[in-house]
Design a binder for these strands. Structure first.
Lengths: 335, 335
DNA sequence: GTGCCGATATGAAACGATTCAACGATCTGC
DNA sequence: GCAGATCGTTGAATCGTTTCATATCGGCAC
């Protein structure tokens, strides 16, 4: 007993293949008795539609692709959750790809999705060059950037204002009297990183005696943050910043952890204030609750799907939708 | 310019369809000059293989399905990471489904995967009845349970010894002199929950004056744990347990957070010791570092894929592979 | 009895790739 | 100059579904 096809069902029910297909897709066009016969045959044989054949026929799949920078970052799983929920409501399934920030992996997923003829791609780009994405979009696979903008405006984008977010974080620190800022950043090629940094610089520029130091880490992870934190502890006190802005919470929590673990050496926030970005669930429950800049994550995912569907349905281009971030002050800065 | 097919490439390159296919799949069988011509045509036209057609032809896709109980739980993203890495090495892609512990959602994913003719399914079952999975397995879609066992032995399973893990956690608490244990559990239908609980009961039974209270929460999340923690704080001190075992770290961290936030009322671990399960990355960096029972997550994922591939390749059934958990003691129990 | 209608059911074409038997061209050795 | 081997290419069949033009049938009006 190999795999059961629609043909086997037709034979068993004593009808034609076309009728079985009608029962599957337009049962109202088929006589009740026939529907019943066919349904019985389907159950008995355990027939399961072959999705590949169906796709081949109508040219595209019922799925959309989502490529995130890091599945282990709660920020992205929250966005993914929003995406999945909205997609399911539209009868679409979501294939999740994890680029780990690697343009090569990103490219593999894009190829895979294109081969699968997905109905659209949602992506937080790891590759600063958006050429490949623009080409995909032109080849009639709508692309929506999630948390990232296309300077040329060719691609739809759903973002949170990262420049404003960076500025808010910096102004918060400066407002608390901090003057020697350290920005713990990720790869400069990520637009989020570049924008948040630009926001910080703008805020700093407005305060004459404020200074800034920037470190670019290759990875936006807790481990990377912890290592950097350790190096801060190792510095003589006079060479330490009095405030740290981490471009995401993973880094921020890592830094925090390292600072606090060396008990007594560095106090948070007395000696060094720390603020992160994203306001993931863990920020609130850290050793010292971490201040952060909150993004409307699930909404981002939902809106991205809406933009995609709008494109598919007829072309209205959403353009660049931008949400506002929100500062959440906690003990790691306010004490 | 609609979508480019292999036929267009053949025409453009002045060869037959079969030859283009050969260039794609067995270039060594084709004359160098022809390969070059075809490749040029492919690039020029921007041809992308239609995966649906390929699949239809050879009967199955190059993907495997993975259904987890909760994508937002770092435990599962770590397992998923292991799975994805191992699958990629075998040239397979992974479609990730999130059941959120809901049997209905689980069922939808299984149907989807079956329609897609995946090469196999890896699953942490939400539905205690494994019938559907056994049927799937019989219909020649190999199923491997990840962190769950099939009592009938019909399904392959890769697990960590949950009974032993539960016992380790309880013995650790008892060894520290605690006697009134509260077990914060999840749905009793989850085998992991049931097994860990069984381990606890076994340990308790060996200590005459030890008592145990069990609470089953509907969700294994931080939020659920926090709520329960709050209710503990509200109890009169005499009615509080002196130790809490949470069946996963999400719950444990939630409980911890609630206890610690009400400063002064309940001290951890002096008044109440807390231990979790899984040893996710966040356990170590909690307000009070959380003791936990560690599972080899990535290895679990890798081993599951190996079992799947072995089945696919020829039938050697892996049976039930079982790893040993490991106790990680931190301040939340040892002070 | 003829013609027509609506309601159902049918059968063939199409989707795009893969595979394999068969074919033609070129070469080898005698 | 020919049998036989080698190499590269071709064309047709095939996978399972959907769709649509066409066929069938019973009933109804005249």
């Amino acid at each position: 007993m190999g795999v059961v096809s629609i043909r086997d069902v037709a034979t068993a029910a004593g009808v034609s293949i076309g009728t079985v297909s009608n029962v599957l897709n337009r049962p109202e066009k088929v006589a009740d008795a026939t529907v019943a016969k066919v349904r019985a045959a389907i159950d008995e044989l355990g027939f399961i539609r072959n999705e590949a054949a169906r796709q081949l026929r109508d040219g595209r799949s019922a799925a959309i692709g989502l490529v995130v920078l890091d599945v282990r970052n709660p920020y992205f799983t929250d966005v993914a959750h929003g995406v999945e929920t909205a997609a399911a409501a539209a009868g679409l399934s979501v294939t999740l790809g994890n680029s780990d920030g690697d343009p090569a992996r990103e490219r593999r997923y894009l190829e895979l999705f294109e081969q699968q003829r997905v109905q659209g791609v949602l992506i937080s780009p790891a590759d600063a060059s958006l050429d490949r994405l623009r080409r995909l979009d032109e080849r009639s696979i709508p692309v929506v950037l999630v948390d990232g903008v296309d300077p040329t405006g060719a691609l739809d984008a759903v973002t949170v204002d990262d420049v404003a977010g960076g500025r808010m974080a910096a102004e918060h620190l400066l407002g608390l009297g901090r003057r020697r800022l350290l920005v713990v950043a990720g790869p400069a090629t990520l637009s989020q990183v570049a924008d948040r940094l630009a926001g910080v610089r703008a805020a700093i520029a407005a305060v004459p005696d404020a200074s800034i130091e920037v470190v670019h880490l290759p990875q936006l992870t807790v481990t990377a943050g912890r290592e950097l934190g350790r190096s801060l502890v190792a510095r003589p006190a006079s060479a330490r910043p009095d405030a740290v802005f981490a471009v995401n919470d993973l880094l921020g929590l890592g830094v925090l952890q390292a600072l606090v673990l060396e008990r007594g050496t560095v106090r948070v926030p007395e000696d060094v204030a720390v603020i992160g970005y994203d306001d993931i669930e863990w920020a609130a429950s850290a050793v010292v609750p971490l201040s952060s800049v909150r993004q409307p994550r699930e909404q981002l995912g939902r809106t991205a799907i809406e933009a995609l569907l709008a494109r598919g349905a007829g072309g209205e281009r959403a353009g660049a939708v931008r949400f506002a971030p929100e500062l959440v002050a906690r003990r790691s800065t306010t004490g």
